[in-house]
Design a protein around this nucleic acid. Sequence first.
DNA 1: TCTGGGGTCCTAGGACCC
DNA 2: TCTGGGGTCCTAGGACCC
Length: 422
Amino acid sequence: MSRFALVDCNNFYVSCERVFNPALEGRPVVVLSNNDGCAVARSNEAKALGITMGAPVFTLEAELRRHNVAVYSSNYALYGDMSRRVITTLGQMVPDLEVYSIDESFLDLTSFRKADVPELCRTMVVTVKRNTGIPVSVGVGPTKTLAKVAAGLAKKHPCLGGVCDVTDAVWRERALAATDVGKVWGVGRRYERFLKVRGINTALDLTRADGAMIQKRMGVNGTRLLSELTGTRCYPLEANPPVKKGVGVSRTFASGIEEQTALTEALSTYAERAAEKLRKEGLRAGIMEVYAMSNRFHRQNFYYNTKTVRFPAPTSDASELIKGALSAFEEIYKEDIPFKKLGLHMRELTLESQEQRLLFDTVDRTRSSALMKAVDAVNGTMGKRILGYASSGLSDPKTWRTRFNHKSPSYTTRWDELLRVS
DNA sequence: TCTGGGGTCCTAGGACCC
DNA sequence: TCTGGGGTCCTAGGACCC
């Protein structure tokens, strides 16, 4: 029988901030989304205050002040780097590892002896904490979905010491009974409501539900979910991440923007960023979809439009992407609309290594790829955006820049922001 | 006034083909 | 009265994840 572990970093963004600022220990802490818009990570103390995931900051302000909550903007460079450290540490203990998200990894423990698993998991908790400062919870079970259930309980009940194993049937049933159906992996808000209306309140209830009904409402994923919860593996460990199907870059502005120059500067920057992402993955895109919208919370006068550009040949050339993005935007831009969000999606991705050249191409691919390599090299060694395109904006101040008013230093990724010990 | 970003997969329905 | 049956491809929308 297969055995999986899920290692889940506790309140990951908050924990990263605490590693470099131990005074935050025991205090309520929240980390905010882009533009300092919503709470996206909360310490246990902040959760206890009733601060919910995704709550808009403007609804929390009084609460944050009253309880002296420490507030941080997202520091993606720091979190990304801390994530790599956690993954490296885990990889040294268990080689069969799938990086599931920035703060979660699945490990395949099938080849370990059952008797060794509890000790191994405890060692993981201690070692990751010692090497990185990040506290983690470990869940173990015969399927990924059950490992998730177990990790949820390990996090919720400190008396378990950060580890919960539901391999044995007795523990599994208890664990499922103690898990709200809405907390099950694959059950979101809609499905939760559907299930609870029908008296299915826990994960255990779900395992006893009518399979045909689940299949009808939740499709094949619902059927797989039932199998996984009852111990039949449907999802294998994916050690090698599959090739991406799409690459997107989008941003919401702190407030609505009407000025066309600012908007095209922003979009040009996103196109550059998208080209960079493509090149990093060794990919080229066949089409680009550009979209623009006004504030989606203002239901009256909501504006949304999108325009698709097809390239003559798959490309990751920044100037080609910028050109495409700006010409598409001209068709969806409207005066007098305060734009709140702009973005683009690259699709029909192909690997550079499987390139097909056009007989009559409008772009000199050899020159363009040499130029892009040079840009990547300079920006890689000398700092981001040393080299960039004029269309992405020479003017200051930039009304469209994302707001990060509470950001901590990039302690681990910038020499000038290293932690100082005095 | 203020409410993120980046993904994946599935399904239904229409167009089109033989 | 009666109006094939598959198959493929594409798109839009819905649901989920972190």
